[in-house]
């Protein structure tokens, strides 16, 4: 369903990666591995259509990712390295804004449920700047619970999470895959306990 052909990219005049091909089907997870600076984040951003490639093409359901129409773009959710959480807002407000941006109405009950599930019960009304790094990350990840997008692109989702949160996230990914979802992710830590992880080695 998600297909990449001959991706190559240059940054600052030098080639970052080239000749990357892969194919991700429903229920599959693609794990992008590599040392620092080998272009993991760039590749993930390219998969979302944020970065222009030098050559090659990423397609989702046969459509060029950079030319998706509105409804097709809702099929993708991206949690980046920079997690799009505003310090000034509370977790609940952050979720409300994110939902609004995606064109969905604000559903307070669902948002509160999602925050409870990521372990932020009791912190819904505290501005994010007073929360810890891990709680901030959880706020970002709680967006996954609210979306119905099949394709999840997660850049270093385990950063700053404690053991319990890591377990929770792995379980969530497992569930998403079981429902026929697609996941593309990177991590420094090995992701054990995930079935059928396709591994893409950059570098």
């Amino acid at each position: 369903m998600l297909k990449a052909e001959g991706l190559s990219c240059r940054r600052g005049g030098r080639p970052l990666f080239s000749g990357i091909d892969f194919n991700v089907d429903p229920g599959q997870l693609l794990f992008v591995r590599g040392r620092n600076g080998c272009g993991k984040t760039t590749l993930l951003r390219a998969i979302c259509g944020l970065t222009a490639l030098e050559s090659g093409q990423v397609t989702l359901r046969g459509e060029d990712i950079r030319r998706l129409d509105e409804s097709a773009r809702a099929d993708l959710i991206y949690v980046g390295h920079r997690d799009a959480v505003k310090d000034e807002f509370t977790p609940l407000e952050n979720l409300a804004v994110q939902q609004g941006l995606r064109g969905e109405g604000f559903d307070e009950a669902r948002c509160l449920d999602a925050l409870e599930e990521v372990g932020l019960a009791g912190y819904e009304d505290i501005p994010v700047r007073y929360l810890s790094q891990g709680q901030r990350r959880r706020t970002a990840l709680s967006r996954l619970l609210l979306s119905s997008s099949p394709l999840w692109v997660l850049d270093e989702p385990l950063t700053a999470l404690d053991v319990r949160a890591v377990d929770w996230l792995l379980e969530l990914l497992e569930m998403h895959l079981a429902q026929g979802g697609l996941v593309v992710t990177t991590s420094h830590q090995p992701i054990d306990g995930l079935r059928e992880a396709n591994i893409l080695d950059l570098s």
Binding site: R45, C48, G49, L50, D69, E70, S71, R73, A74, L76, Y78, G80, H81, R82, D83, A84, V85, K86, D87, Q98, L101, R102, G103
Partner: peptide, 14 residues
Amino acid sequence: WRDGTLEQIVLSHQ
């Protein structure tokens, strides 16, 4: 731009 919201805005279907 710094905190990544701009990326999300670009990805949202607006």
